[in-house]
Amino acid sequence: MTMSAVEDKMHVEENAMNPNWAVIKKIETETVDTSTLWLEFEDEEVRKDYKYSAGQFNMLYLPIYGESAISISSDPDQEGLIGHTIRFVGNVTRAVSRLNVGDRISVRGPFGTNWPVEESKGKDVIIFAGGIGLAPLRPAIYQIINNRKDYGKVTIVYGARCPSDLLYTGEYEEWRSHDIELMVTVDHADDTWDGLVGVVPMYFYRLRPNPENTVLWSCGPEIMMHFVLYEGLARKIPDNQIYLSYERNMKCGVGVCGHCQHGAYYICKDGPIFTYEQLEPYFNVEDL
């Protein structure tokens, strides 16, 4: 006569987890393991209502393979296709790498906090990006360019492991033409590379920031961001003007599945972009 709920017919839940289909309209190959997928929502209402901010991410879901958090890399001020630059390293993203133009993928989002693009008007902006970390910063770079006169000095230091790993190489000249100082460096190079060799955080010593009027934004491997942070702090940039984009195992995107907790934060909801002031209590706590 007894019957447990586990044996009951399974419940169906209608909520934020449901799929939201989009079609791949364009694929740009960036590097040997990274491409940008340009998506359009199938549903016209969704397409119209979808708004996002620079630095936010979506959960891309491919049936059978699962879901993966991917930051949005297109211009939030532009209507139309939504860009996702994806590095193919996990089960889900490797399956995504096999998709073609015309294929469908589900998109949930946008989730998370954004770069303080509005709040930083009137200030000098220093951006340190490493590897795929340039992807979530590109929307912010576009927005700065859209309103370039509203910002002071804008400097981008971008690095990757080797020249062939650099993203968006076709856009550098355009960025530079908007009075943006862009330094591009690689960790490893042979003699065909005429640019800078050296790790990203090291180039801080070439900058002479006016700390009170500078915001520092960084995204890249966590160790890289830590060294960028140390350089920023050494130059007296205030804790609440340093923004880092963190990443953990995001699953639900709405701070309820528990996976991406970092201290009291849910990275998916309270982050991914935090000020150092917010992160400081948990900073350098191993395996938090």
Partner: peptide, 21 residues
């Protein structure tokens, strides 16, 4: 500065990819 840079090169930051399922 050079030593710090060399150390970071050794760390090979980009070796591991960001989180995903």
């Amino acid at each position: 500065g050079r030593l710090m840079g060399a150390r970071m090169q050794l760390l090979d930051f980009y070796g591991k990819q960001d989180c995903e399922e």
